[in-house]
């Protein structure tokens, strides 16, 4: 364990503070900004490593932007770096949301504010549907994944099942299907193996 480099930690904090205050629209919009800052401007992380960091951060639970910031901070300066990255990313959003919430709670009864929000709600719906579409482009690859997606949607909408058990079931189903397929592959002819190979 080396001595803590406070100057570096302050730099990490400030970098992620800056990134946190300019990245609108959540994690995915922040990824290219993080890459530019840490790889090209600061040379903290090399180009290959950042791709792995993003892939793993997106696969972990929680806010993607926060995971990326923490992960990048960790790879620069271990746990103190992780905390600096995390806090840097958090600070601007916390301050701004507090400010907006305070302003909003004061003026929320004004008719014009309510009308404005009636215009904003559908944008939020559009934003969320677009987020779903973006994840679908990575996750929906075959008939099985389409079926899993539809089942999860209908189970939420009609049966009101909580997301957490659905997510756990999805992971379990994925493991079962993955093992099933690899067993099937091992047992079947070479021909099928070749076919699978061509698909990928």
């Amino acid at each position: 364990m080396t001595k803590i480099d406070y100057k570096l930690l302050v730099q990490i904090y400030l970098s992620f503070f800056k990134l946190g205050s300019i990245s609108f629209g959540g994690g995915y919009s922040m990824i290219p900004l993080i890459e530019r800052e840490v790889v090209h401007c600061r040379n903290w992380v090399d180009k290959e490593k950042i791709v792995d960091i993003f892939a793993v951060s997106e696969s972990l639970p929680g806010a993607i932007a926060l995971n990326c910031s923490t992960f990048v901070g960790f790879s620069i300066a271990r746990i103190p770096g992780a905390i600096a990255g995390l806090l840097g990313n958090l600070t601007p959003s916390v301050l701004l949301v507090l400010l907006l919430s305070a302003v909003f709670s004061k003026y929320s009864t004004y008719p014009a504010v309510r009308s404005a929000f009636s215009g904003i709600y559908p944008v939020i719906v559009g934003l969320i549907l677009f987020a779903s579409y973006k994840i679908a482009r990575v996750s929906i690859k075959d008939v099985t994944s389409i079926a899993i997606g539809i089942i999860a949607f209908l189970a939420s909408l009609l049966l009101h099942i909580d997301p957490i058990p659905l997510i756990i079931c999805g992971a379990a189903a994925g493991i079962a299907i993955g093992f099933g397929r690899s067993l099937f592959k091992a047992a079947s002819h070479e021909k099928i193996n070749n076919k699978e190979g061509h698909k990928q």
Partner: peptide
């Protein structure tokens, strides 16, 4: 494998 099963579920939940 787990991520392959989990991601479509997330797509459905976000939808």
């Amino acid at each position: 494998y787990a991520l392959n099963g989990l991601r479509p579920v997330i797509t459905g939940i976000i939808l």
